[in-house]
């Protein structure tokens, strides 16, 4: 398989996952803000921070008010992390590999982009926002389904899944980091009702709430949430699961030894983590380590398969 094609598949997976995750985050934040009292004003700034676009955002906007942030995250083409940019990039990637992916998948990706382009104003009004974002999410899920159900599970498919899981791992760590650092007080004993709400929103951002509830029947507590999101290998958006998926996909590819070794390093560090003790700075540092680890893994993949030297 050509390196260019493999690279495009990998990024197709990443961009689609990114659009979906961004839609989920906005949806959840909209809901959360409606529940919180005016005195606890979390606002929209953390959404900008999750994707590390603070600088770009403030170069174009004075205030992180709802209107600006929504526009920035949904429809702003200057923001490469916006839903429209991610979908546009996904479409361009898919276009160059149309012969590789099933026709239906290409058509659906095309359709998704057109839908987002024509309807992104719907994200501004609270009334129509949910429907718009849900459509983005569901369309993505459909594409994932088409790919799983109709594409040969060959090397190309492995690259697609690698991209998807790397992006998912990246997003999971970002959400945990931003939400816990800037929003949540780590008062372990005195759980206020609102902290509860906030941890719920972290779970919901990752569609983990329902699954968490089935696993952990107790009251929502930070260590349990962290444990679930980081270490529950049966939950498809947990960090451990995504890493294992990448490893699993790599095993179908040639020359995977070095990359897998790199994954094991990150995985071992993750498995040693004690969610109970991960508070404030410690949690932030730990997440930083994980992010760096993910970067190293992705660099190694790039080097091994896409940009190898002569």
């Amino acid at each position: 398989m050509l390196s260019r094609v493999a690279n495009n598949l990998c990024w197709l997976g990443r961009y689609l996952e990114r659009a979906e995750n961004t839609a989920r985050i906005i949806n959840v934040n909209s809901n959360l803000l409606l529940d919180l009292p005016k005195s606890i004003s979390l606002g929209w700034e953390p959404i900008v921070d999750i994707l590390s676009y603070r600088e770009l955002f403030y170069s174009n906007h004075k205030e992180a008010v709802e209107r600006n942030v929504i526009n920035f995250m949904v429809a702003d083409r200057k923001n490469l992390g916006s839903i429209i940019s991610a979908l546009s990039a996904a479409r361009e990637n898919a276009r160059t590999i149309r012969e590789i992916i099933p026709r239906e998948a290409w058509e659906k990706i095309n359709e998704l982009y057109s839908y987002a382009k024509e309807n992104c104003q719907k994200a501004q009004a609270r009334r129509s926002r949910y429907a718009f974002l849900s459509e983005i999410i569901q369309c993505n899920q459909t594409i994932t389904g088409i790919l799983a159900g109709t594409m040969t599970h060959d090397e190309g498919y492995a690259f697609l899944r690698i991209g998807r899981n790397i992006e998912r791992a990246d997003m999971t760590t970002r959400i945990i980091d931003v939400r816990s650092a800037s929003l949540l007080q780590d008062t372990e004993t005195s759980q206020s009702a609102f902290e509860n709400l906030q941890w719920m929103s972290v779970l919901k951002s990752l569609t983990a709430y329902q699954m968490y509830r089935r696993e952990v029947r107790l009251r929502i507590r930070r260590p349990d949430v962290l444990k679930f999101l980081l270490l529950e290998n049966r939950f498809p958006r947990s960090l451990l699961h995504t890493l294992q998926q990448v490893e699993h996909c790599l095993k179908q590819l040639p020359n995977h030894e070095d990359v897998i070794m790199q994954i094991r390093v990150v995985e071992n560090h993750l498995l040693e983590a004690n969610p109970q003790s991960l508070i404030q700075e410690k949690l932030h540092d730990f997440i930083d380590d994980m992010q760096l680890g993910l970067n190293t893994i992705f660099d190694k993949i790039n080097e091994t398969y896409f940009y190898h030297q002569q």
Binding site: M1, L2, S3, R4, A6, E155, F159, L253, P254, N255, Y305, F306, H308, Q310
Partner: peptide, 22 residues
């Protein structure tokens, strides 16, 4: 292939960049 997929080595042979290497 596109142009960027191919590379000419010092041995004056043409190679394509694949996930297995050149």
């Amino acid at each position: 292939v596109e142009g960027s997929d191919l590379v000419v080595g010092e041995d004056d042979c043409v190679y394509m960049r694949t996930i297995n290497g050149l």
